[in-house]
C-alpha cells in the first residue's frame, strides 16, 4: 500500500489539473501496476474541483475498469470532496 498526501502538493483547494495528472501518472498508476494498493489522503484539503478529481482518477477507471476502485482508498475527505469523488466515480462507471 502506498499513501499519497495531497495537501503538500495542492494546498487546501485542489484545482490544479496539471498536478492531478502528475500524481496519477507518476504515482498512482505505477503503484497499481506494481501490485500495490493506493491511499489518496485528502487531509487538510477542504475542497476540490470536479476537473481536479476527473484528472486524478477518471483515466484509471477507464483503463482498468471499475474493479480498480477496490484498490484505491480515499482518506480524510471533507464532505464536499467525498461528493465530488462520488460524482466522478459515478459518471465514469456510467460511461465506460
Amino acid at each position: 500500500m502506498i499513501r499519497i498526501k495531497l495537501f503538500p502538493l495542492v494546498g487546501s483547494f485542489a484545482e490544479n489539473k496539471d498536478i492531478a495528472r502528475q500524481v496519477r501518472i507518476g504515482r498512482i498508476i505505477p503503484a497499481l501496476e506494481g501490485g500495490k494498493d493506493v491511499t489518496i489522503d485528502f487531509e487538510k484539503v477542504e475542497a476540490a474541483t470536479q476537473s481536479f478529481i476527473h484528472a486524478l482518477i477518471s483515466d484509471i477507471i477507464r483503463k482498468y475498469g471499475s474493479e480498480i476502485l477496490d484498490r484505491i482508498y480515499f482518506k480524510n475527505c471533507s464532505e464536499t470532496v467525498k461528493k465530488m469523488i462520488t460524482i466522478v466515480v459515478d459518471y465514469m462507471q456510467e460511461s465506460v
Binding site: 470536479q50 476537473s51 476527473h54 477518471s58 483515466d59 477507464r62 465506460v96
Partner: peptide, 24 residues
Amino acid sequence: IPGITGTTKKEGGTETNAGAGLFF
C-alpha cells in the same frame, strides 16, 4: 450540457476533460 466536451465525443470525456465545468 453535462458530459459534452469539445475534446471528444466519448461519454466520460478524455483523461483531463469531462465537459462538466460549465454545467456545474
